[in-house]
């Protein structure tokens, strides 16, 4: 199986998110990036499938943020091909534009299975995974946790999540794009020494594209941190004091028995 995985850089939400001087975009220069969590699961799922059934794993990413480290890490985990798409803007284009660029690269990789995170937390004017399926003229199924070999070599089996821990087992004819929420196993840990080794041995493929941002039919007027009508009453003090206060609240509410 020839598997392509899209891995995106997204803002690290642990750090503060700043808005730029136009008030209508994030301040991308000041943002620290991490790998989109669902994409990391997509990579893990691809590696698990390859290990169980043979094949290759190619990772495709736009060139901004911490992408080199991300790609070296993917190589250290077992990905064979690493494709870095030049991107002047230091941010992800809108999902629809991004999809058409990823599609150009993935077509050349002749992938029969494309795994992408089902969402990225910085998207709001589109969803990459189904847009990529459309650009590649492949069928799409998303909200997937777990993919295994199918009953025939030209199929895979995937579980789509529904509420209340219910899953639908589906059989998918390849080629296809799947929107991954979680892998069969949590993303593997890889020692720093292996990543360093990858830095010395691995080379990136850099297709001669240069991606413009494209125009979205959605125009952003203003960004702002959420203003909530309600906020918790904050409990101050040390952990012993906070514990005491919480226990008192539980007594007041008749929740201790």
């Amino acid at each position: 199986m020839n598997i392509a995985v899209v891995v995106r850089q997204v803002p690290d939400l642990i750090e503060s998110l700043d808005i730029d001087s136009t008030a209508s975009a994030l301040d991308w220069e000041s943002i620290s990036f991490i790998v989109n969590e669902c994409d990391d699961h997509a990579l893990e799922q691809a590696l698990l499938l390859k290990e169980a059934n043979g094949g290759t794993v190619s990772v495709v990413a736009f060139d901004f943020g911490d992408v080199e480290n991300t790609l070296y890490t993917a190589a250290a985990k077992g990905a064979e091909r690493l494709v870095k798409i030049p991107c002047e803007t230091h941010r992800h284009p809108s999902p629809w534009t991004a999809a058409s660029w990823y599609a150009q690269v993935i077509r050349d990789l002749a992938a029969d299975l494309v795994l992408v995170g089902v969402q990225a937390h910085d998207e709001f004017d589109g969803v990459l995974a189904p847009a990529l399926a459309t650009a590649l003229s492949m069928p799409y199924l998303g909200v997937i946790r777990g993919v295994q070999a199918g009953s025939r070599p030209t199929t895979v089996a995937a579980c789509k999540e529904f509420p209340r821990a219910v899953r639908a087992r589906m059989e998918i004819e390849l080629p296809a794009v799947l929107g991954i929420l979680g892998a069969d196993r949590p993303p593997r840990y890889v020692p720093v020494s292996r990543i360093r080794n990858a830095m010395n041995t691995v080379h990136f493929e850099e297709p001669g594209l240069n991606v413009p941002l494209g125009e979205s039919p959605v125009s952003v007027c203003r960004l702002y941190p959420p203003v909530s009508g309600t906020h918790a009453e904050m409990i101050a003090g040390s952990e012993a004091e906070a514990a005491d206060r919480i226990a008192d609240i539980l007594v007041e509410k008749g929740l201790l028995s």
Partner: peptide, 28 residues
């Protein structure tokens, strides 16, 4: 964002709070 839906909140390390809370609850 959880503090916007919670009634009460504490900005402390949950791992430090847990043993203290077990103790406080048992005492009450």
């Amino acid at each position: 964002p959880i503090f916007d839906v919670a009634h009460y909140g504490a900005e402390i390390d949950a791992l430090d709070l847990l043993p203290a809370l077990v103790e406080a609850v048992s005492a009450k």
